[in-house]
């Protein structure tokens, strides 16, 4: 962890119609930091994550990424999204492209790399996550765990500054969870800035630098894993943890 701020969330509010889902979030994510967001379903944790790369547009507030408020009308969010990888609960791999094309599509279209360089990098990454023998397969032939590892590699191929994970193991069969978590963990310990919305408490406790517990649109408790899991005084957090641990 360094002290350089990568993402700052300033007074972030989000409404869906009349429903206030985020009720004023003020937080800073530092470079190389690993943050787990936990909390009961419907508390706004996925919405908060999706506000960081503007898949949801916050109703009010600022998202400052590398010193730039990306909500500013003059800023093109596309350019900033290229530096923020995202991994989804339902993988969202491209079914009409093979594994290699899934990964190289964006780097080539965004003119970040030549085709040859993108493919070389993709194959290297695939080998790292144990998909070295699936380069030319189509996603329909992959298991859920393999699809999610492909999705992680696809995000990594853009050389992002931060990886955002939205419940990456919630749609997986139990026996697939471990492999995917190991890949995420291996990225996190090599210094990739990571924000992960998760229900895997063991993972959050083991890998995070900080844990945010969200409840009803606010971050109700935060701190080191030890602070949140062992010493919280917040009644909502105590109740939640007693149910999931």
């Amino acid at each position: 962890m360094t002290d350089q701020a990568l993402i700052q969330l300033v007074d972030l509010h989000k409404y869906f119609g009349d429903l206030e889902v985020l009720k004023g979030i003020n937080e800073t994510i530092k470079e190389k930091e690993v943050i787990s967001i936990i909390g009961p379903s419907g508390c706004g944790k996925s919405t908060l994550l999706r506000c960081m790369n503007l898949l949801e547009t916050p109703t009010q507030g600022q998202v400052i990424f590398e010193g730039v408020n990306i909500l500013d009308k003059k800023v093109d969010p596309t350019l900033h999204r290229r530096k923020m990888g995202m991994v989804f609960q339902h993988f969202n791999v491209f079914p009409h492209l093979n594994v290699l094309e899934n990964i190289t599509l964006a780097p080539i279209l965004n003119k970040l790399m030549t085709k040859a360089a993108a493919e070389e990098k993709a194959i290297g990454l695939l080998e790292r996550v144990g998909l070295g023998d699936k380069v030319y397969e189509y996603p329909r032939k992959l298991s859920g765990g393999q699809k999610q590892r492909l999705a992680i590699v696809r995000a990594m191929a853009m050389d992002p500054k931060v990886l955002l994970f939205d419940e990456p193991t919630s749609a997986l069969d139990p026996e697939m969870v471990k492999g995917v978590l190991e890949v995420i963990k291996s990225l996190a310990i090599t210094g990739m800035t990571t924000v992960i919305v998760t229900h895997e408490m063991g993972f959050a406790r083991e890998v995070s630098d900080r844990v945010w517990f969200m409840y009803d649109g606010v971050i109700a408790e935060k701190g080191t894993p030890d602070d949140v899991f062992n010493h919280t005084k917040n009644p909502r957090a105590i109740e939640f943890l007693s149910q999931v641990l």
Binding site: T78, R82, K83, H90, N92, L105, N110, A151, R154, A155
Partner: peptide, 14 residues
């Protein structure tokens, strides 16, 4: 699937 569009957006495609 709308997730396809979201994935493409998150990769910074135009």
């Amino acid at each position: 699937d709308p997730g396809q569009r979201e994935a493409a957006l998150s990769l910074g495609l135009t």
